[in-house]
Simulated scan of single mutants.
Amino acid sequence: MKSRRLGRIVLNGTGVLVFLAAVFPVLWMVSTAFKPNTEIFSSTPQPLPKHPTLEHFDLVLNGKIAEGSFWGYFGNSLVLALATVVISSLLALLAATAVARFRFRFRTTFLVMLLVVQMVPCEALVISLFLDLKRLDMLNSLVGLTVVYVAFAVPFAIWMLRGFVAAVPKELEEAAAIDGAGAMRTFFTVLLPLVAPGLVATSIFSFITAWNEFIFAFTFLEDQDKATLPMMMQFFFGRSGNAWGPIMAASTLLTLPVIAFFLIVQRRMVSGLTAGAVKG
């Protein structure tokens, strides 16, 4: 009894330490965003600001950053992220349904290739993708960048959604067919609601991938009015020094839409678990 209790205490303590190690950088980022420059560059580290200020947030939100503004960069990132989520989720759902429900030639090869694609570093594809977009006249275009983001989000989404689709009993679809539902109605009223939790997980991944991506955006976009929020961060780094206050303020603002998106789609996760059942 004592050994079990001691083991539980050790596990809980380890979990708390891991949590603190993961959360500490985020807390330091937020704390630094509210510190005045005198406290940021102080030789004595201060976990919390003694004299909180909003000057860094004011500079990021209302100041002119390079040739654009925060809200312009925010709009570009939002368009890219939402377009990536919608397109990749639709393509991945259709492909995952085909892989999970149908038997066709090279099906196993297709699944293996999905894993192989995930193993290739993104940096190794920058040159080839640059040449492809240049050939298609899609450089310096948000549309071209969206195509790249979708291409990287779809393989992972297919692999994840395949498990959710395969977990849905075929009897539910057969029961809907007996009741007179066609293939499209069965897909939207039976399969789609039950696969909704998987769509939520993949959409979060796709959103974060497009929202935080920097290398492709920095390489493929030339005009600053098409820059994204991660690209905006580089404007605070200079040869003479780095503006750590605005950097931390911009980083804090950069994380808020991801949290908001997760909270919005998370509410719809539970409803998808019980929806889509047939009459009993």
Rank of each mutant, 00 (worst) to 15 (best):
I215A: 11
A66Y: 03
V143S: 13
L161C: 07
F207S: 10
P25L: 04
F70M: 01
P197A: 08
H51A: 11
S271T: 15
W28L: 06
F261A: 05
L172Q: 06
F236Q: 00
A177P: 02
G13P: 00
L145D: 03
T255R: 02
S128I: 07
W28A: 09
A98S: 14
I204M: 13
E222F: 09
D225Y: 01
A183Q: 12
W211A: 03
K50T: 14
T97Y: 15
V195C: 05
N12G: 14
M113Q: 15
F156T: 06
I259W: 03
L114T: 09
G198N: 00
W28K: 02
G75W: 01
L78N: 00
T186E: 04
K2S: 15
A227W: 10
K134S: 13
L114E: 07
P193I: 05
A250Y: 02
M1D: 14
S31V: 03
G15N: 05
V112P: 01
E174R: 09
F74S: 07
V278C: 02
A183G: 09
L94C: 11
L27S: 03
H56R: 04
D179Y: 07
F205A: 11
S77W: 01
F106E: 10
I65G: 02
T146R: 00
L273I: 05
S3P: 11
G63P: 01
D137C: 08
P257G: 04
V85T: 01
S128D: 12
N76Y: 07
P52Q: 01
V126I: 13
W244N: 03
G272T: 08
V165R: 06
F220G: 06
A153Q: 04
F164L: 05
F207Y: 04
K35A: 07
A166D: 10
V154R: 06
G75F: 07
V270A: 10
F130W: 14
L82G: 00
W159F: 14
F152G: 05
P36C: 08
L263R: 09
I247F: 09
T228G: 01
I215M: 15
R162Q: 15
G182K: 10
V120C: 13
L82C: 12
S206D: 05
E123L: 13
A33W: 05
Q118E: 04
I40D: 05
L94W: 11
A151L: 08
V10P: 03
E67V: 12
A277W: 12
G276I: 03
V148P: 02
L131W: 11
E171Y: 06
G13H: 00
A124L: 13
T32M: 00
S31K: 00
